[in-house]
């Protein structure tokens, strides 16, 4: 207010007015408040211009920050307005149904015999595969470091089997929270940019032969051996994913022939 030229920004009464005009632009006024204000704007051109400016700011900001589209095929927009999703999430029902309709479970429903880690592996695949953060191949030295780090965090030795025979190179690994302790996720990529992930987490409950989880276009083959659960996730091609999983399972000390198909 020491600055006579810039009177609009800071004077309290202008601040109040700006709040009112903002509330109009943001749809936060009741029907009555809105009607009164619109009446006023009909002859208060200065205020009308401000409202118009706020609207233009909004349009420009939305244009500046479009919704990122990568991985868009995986992301399903719920049909319910998002303000109602709080309730939906609380009931655990409505959003689940909306998603269920869009991403039908083709395998057994969740909780019907699959270990949680297979689900988590599938979701972790969906979450991280679109990221383009680590596009370079992990060097041998980095790989050793990565394996040591992940083994320490999982408190068991973990290994990333080579999948070069199938054209996939290891491009990175990350630590994720799992339901029975931390989980490691290795990411592989082929020349075409297709990605596979191998998810590894403690699973002391029992030994599991190779099994398949289908979720939308994603496939996960999972098994458990020597206290660790493994899940190999990738896009559609089931036969190929199974073949890779068999090799990975054998390379990791399991016995894939126990799998009957």
């Amino acid at each position: 207010m020491n600055e006579p030229r810039d009177t609009s920004a800071n004077a309290p009464e202008n601040d109040d007015d700006a709040r009112l005009l903002c509330a109009l632009v943001d749809g936060e006024l009741s029907g009555d408040e809105r009607a009164v204000l619109l009446d006023r704007l009909a002859h208060d051109t200065a205020a009308a211009e401000r409202v118009e400016h706020y609207r233009r700011q909004n349009a420009a900001l939305r244009q500046l920050f479009p919704l990122p589209s990568e991985g868009a095929s995986l992301f399903v927009q719920p049909r319910t307005p998002w303000r109602r999703l709080g309730l939906a999430a609380a009931s655990g029902l409505v959003l689940g149904l909306a998603l269920g309709a869009a991403l039908p479970w083709q395998a057994l429903p969740w909780g019907m015999g699959q270990p949680d880690f297979a689900q988590r592996a599938d979701v972790a695949y969906a979450v991280y595969v679109p990221e383009r953060r680590h596009p370079v191949e992990v060097t041998v030295a980095e790989q050793a470091h990565l394996l040591t780090w992940l083994s320490n965090r999982l408190k068991q030795p973990v290994a990333a089997p080579p999948l070069g025979e199938y054209g996939y190179a290891l491009v990175g690994g990350r630590l994720l929270p799992g339901d029975s302790g931390p989980a490691a996720q290795f990411m592989y990529q082929n020349a075409a940019g297709t990605r596979l992930t191998l998810y590894i987490t403690p699973f002391p409950q029992r030994k599991l032969a190779l099994q398949l989880l289908r979720e939308g276009e994603r496939r996960t083959v999972y098994w458990a051996n020597q206290g660790l659960g493994y899940a190999l996730s990738g896009p559609g091609d089931e036969a190929r994913l199974r073949a890779i999983a068999v090799d990975a399972c054998n390379a990791l000390g399991g016995d894939a022939s126990a799998w009957s198909g």
Binding site: L67, V76, L99, W110, V123, V127, E131
Partner: peptide, 29 residues
Amino acid sequence: MSFESDLLVWLPHLRRYARALTRDQAWAD
């Protein structure tokens, strides 16, 4: 019903907000 699949719905929105806050793609990721 999985919380994780609900999470996926909001992932693009999180990315957008992070990018707008930081204006730095790597930081946002």
